[in-house]
Design a protein around this nucleic acid. Sequence first.
DNA 1: ATTTTATAGAAATATTATTCCTTAAAAATT
DNA 2: AATTTTTAAGGAATAATATTTCTATAAAAT
Lengths: 156, 156
Amino acid sequence: MSNKLDRYDQMILDTLQKQGRITNQELAEAIKLSPSPCLRRVRQMEEEGLIDGYVALLNAKKLGLTLMAFIGISMDKHTPERFEALESTLADYPEVLECHLITGQSADYLLKVIVKDMDAYQQFLLNKLTRIEGVTGVHTSFVMKSPINSTALSVT
Amino acid sequence: MSNKLDRYDQMILDTLQKQGRITNQELAEAIKLSPSPCLRRVRQMEEEGLIDGYVALLNAKKLGLTLMAFIGISMDKHTPERFEALESTLADYPEVLECHLITGQSADYLLKVIVKDMDAYQQFLLNKLTRIEGVTGVHTSFVMKSPINSTALSVT
DNA sequence: ATTTTATAGAAATATTATTCCTTAAAAATT
DNA sequence: AATTTTTAAGGAATAATATTTCTATAAAAT
C-alpha cells in the first residue's frame, strides 16, 4: 500500500475511467511516460484494489430497456434478518442495478431498476418486489431523462 | 443494424459487462468460438452503439471518497431554461455522478453524489447546489451501505 | 559525500489483435 | 429439390501490443 497518488497515477485513473480498453502504449503516450513504468503503475493500482475492475457499458435503449425507475422501499421491521433476506432476494433480479440502504426518508432502501417497459415494470413490482417479506411500502419515481450518468470519480 | 442478438452475442455482452478488459482470445474461448468471428462480433456491436464504451471502475473508499448521497431537488419553475441551466452547472461538478429528471415525487431531479466526507458534502450543498438559480428545495438521503451496485444490464 | 531506494527507460520476447483468405452452413430463388 | 446467393465460421500470416528483464538515473536517507 504505497498510498498517495502522484500526477501520473491520477492521469492514468482519469484516462482509464473514460477509456477502459485503451492500450498501454496509448495510455503511456497520453500521460507522457514510457510503456513499462506506465504498465507497472496500472498493475499496482489494480493490485491495491484502487481499480476495482473494468466493464463494458451497454446502451440500455438499444437493448430495448427503455424504462428506468428509482424505487423507495419501506420495511416493517429493521432487523438484520429482514434486511439480509431482502438484499439477497434482490441480488437475483437482473432488473435491480443498485440497492442502497439510506437515511433521510420514510423509505429504508432506494433501488435503481431498469426494465423493458411499463408492463415489465408492473410485473417486477407485483411479482417480485411486493412479494418480499417485510416490504410495507413502495414509492416509484420514473426517470424521464438522465442528463448526467457517469461512473467516473474525481481522483484529485 | 443487424438487430437480434444470438447466443454468442449475449454471451459476449454478459462477459464484457463483467470483464471489460478480457482478451479477445480468452473471450473467444469462454463463449466457444474462434477468435476471428468473436472479434468481428465485438467490433460490430461497438459500431452499432450497443456497447457504449469501456471504463475502469474505481474503489471510492480507497480514493478517500466515503460519503454517497442521493439528493432530491425541487425547482421553482419548470421551464427549459431553468432545467438547462441546472443541468449544465451540475455537469461541471465532479461530485455529481448522476442527474435524473424524475416523476412521482415533490422533487424534480434526483442526484447521486459522492464526496470525501460530511464536511465536503456541506460545502457542496452550500457553495454549489443551493446557489443554482431556481433551486427551491433540497432533500438528502445518505447511503449507509450499497449491497448491490452494478452496471450490468440483462441482455436476454 | 556515499549508500540505499525507487522508478524511469530500452530492448528482447511472448502474447494478442487484426487482416485476409478459404470453407461451410444457412437462406433464398428458380 | 437443385442451384444460387448470402452469411458467418475457422485458419494462418502479419502487425501490434503486453510483458519481462536489465540498465540507468534520480531522489532520499544515512
